[in-house]
């Protein structure tokens, strides 16, 4: 399988007035199609920055970020937006649903932006996904009429509705209780297995990380390691400091 995401020597710096704050310091990473990969690390380690770069909502200061074979640094704003729409699905920590739209409309929205399907096809696709996330009966509800877990399931459905190659999830369970969080991860995992969609999610919850088939560890904006396979992941979770980066690269 080829890389769906390729990050090479990426540096990301933010300017806070006259102070330059490095968020990523020369990170390289390859993500294969169909992986269910977790980015782990303490707060401020650069997890969200990495997801933002992969999600094309931000651009690297230096280095190359390739998503679905396209160098994002060379794309116009319009093309980046189109890439996000057609290739990437987002699941946010705080759900980020549009409050004035119903559950159905929230999930349907990316399809409307795509303009590829007609009304009947859109309806069928949305309802199928809502069935999958167990919210078909809530299609006409507004987000404020749902629980946190239900909202996150709507966000999952919205992220998947365009059948993207990659789904990015930034701390998807952080605002949920452990049972609901577990259910969301199970849902993501089953969709990953059924459809072969690549999932990249950030978390610092070890229970969540256990479901990943690879864990990428970040600290202070640097890649600390990447563990693949259940045993390696388990070991990584135990010590969070197993293999050096060079050995861990796939």
């Amino acid at each position: 399988m080829g890389s769906i995401v390729s990050i090479r020597d990426v540096v990301k710096e933010y300017s806070l007035g006259k102070v330059v704050v490095p968020a990523l310091r020369g990170v390289s990473l390859e993500v294969e199609k169909g992986e269910f990969i977790s980015i782990a690390g303490p707060s401020g380690s650069g997890k969200t920055t990495m997801l933002n770069l992969i999600g094309c909502v931000d651009t690297a200061t230096r280095g190359v970020v390739e998503v679905a074979g396209q160098d994002t640094g060379k794309l116009t704003e319009r093309k980046l937006t189109a890439l996000r729409l057609d290739t990437i699905g987002f699941i946010f920590q705080s759900f980020n649903l549009v409050s004035v739209l119903t559950v159905f409309q929230n999930v349907e929205f990316p399809l409307l932006l795509q303009r590829k399907l007609n009304g009947a096809q859109r309806k069928a696709r949305v309802m199928q996904l809502l069935e999958q996330v167990g919210l078909a009966t809530h299609a006409k509800h507004r987000p404020n009429e749902l629980s946190g877990g239900q909202r996150q399931r709507v966000a999952v459905a919205r992220a998947l509705v365009t059948e993207p190659q990659i789904v990015l999830a930034d701390e998807p369970t952080a605002n949920l209780d452990s049972v609901t969080g577990q259910a969301i991860i199970d849902l993501m995992k089953s969709l990953n297995q059924q459809k072969g969609t690549t999932f990249i999610f950030s978390t610092h919850d070890y229970k969540v990380m256990q479901h990943a088939n690879a864990v990428v560890r970040l600290a202070d904006g640097k890649l600390q390691g990447r563990e693949t396979g259940e045993a390696a992941v388990a070991a990584a979770l135990k010590g969070m400091s197993v293999a050096p980066v060079a050995q861990a690269a796939p």
Partner: peptide
């Protein structure tokens, strides 16, 4: 934040 979300999921500036 809603604008950011819509832009992130693929809404063009014109929209």
């Amino acid at each position: 934040r809603e604008i950011g979300t819509l832009r992130a999921i693929g809404m063009q500036r014109a929209r």
